[in-house]
Simulated assay, not measured.
Amino acid sequence: MNNEISNFWSTAILEFFIALGVVIGGSTIGSLSTLLTGRPPLYTMEDLASRLKIWALVAALGGTFSTIKAIERGVLGGQLSIIIKQIILILFAYWGSHIGYLIILLLAKGEG
């Protein structure tokens, strides 16, 4: 049981950092396109970070179908713990993507 809890929290932390990395990495590397397009790089970073938030969430969760299937299994099986775990994993992935977005805004605008 203790190992199962440890695995759950390590998965939650992993999903947080995957989502964080997708937003930060995608928007910084994507902003290199400004070298070819002539668009303002900081605006492009902000725009990409905003657009990547939802995709970072999906990438961290490994696709939405596994999460939806687990929630369905919890609802139909009457196992509230499965539903709560999936919600926590979704929240960790969301927080990672949102914090990545905030970091990009901080870098692009230079505000603290």
Rank of each mutant, 00 (worst) to 15 (best):
L35Q: 15
T44E: 10
G21E: 05
L80P: 02
V23F: 10
I104V: 11
V22S: 05
L48N: 07
L91A: 15
S33P: 01
L35G: 13
L105M: 11
N2M: 04
S31H: 03
A70N: 15
G63E: 10
S33V: 14
I71Y: 08
L20P: 05
I84Q: 10
L42P: 00
A49Y: 08
S27G: 08
L102R: 11
G77D: 13
L102I: 04
E46N: 06
P41Y: 01
S97V: 01
W95V: 15
E46A: 14
E72C: 02
V23H: 04
I5S: 07
I24C: 07
A108S: 14
L105Y: 13
S10V: 06
G62M: 09
I99H: 01
I18W: 07
S81N: 06
T44W: 09
I13V: 14
I84Y: 05
L36W: 10
A12V: 14
Q79I: 15
F17V: 10
K109N: 14
V58D: 02
S6M: 03
A93V: 09
L42C: 00
T67F: 04
L89H: 12
I71N: 07
G77Q: 06
A49W: 07
F92N: 07
V58R: 00
K109P: 03
L107I: 15
L105V: 06
F17A: 11
F65D: 11
G112I: 12
F65H: 03
T34M: 04
A108H: 02
W9A: 05
L91R: 01
W9D: 09
A108K: 00
A49Q: 08
I83C: 05
V22L: 10
I82N: 00
A59C: 11
L32M: 14
V58T: 04
I54M: 15
E72T: 14
L91F: 14
G25Q: 08
R73C: 00
M1Y: 03
K85I: 02
S97G: 15
F16T: 12
G96L: 01
H98M: 06
F92T: 10
M1Q: 10
P40T: 07
K109D: 12
L89R: 13
S97E: 01
I87P: 01
Y94G: 05
S97Y: 05
K53H: 04
P40W: 08
I84R: 08
G38T: 08
L48G: 13
Q86V: 09
K85R: 09
W95Y: 11
G26M: 07
I84C: 04
W9S: 11
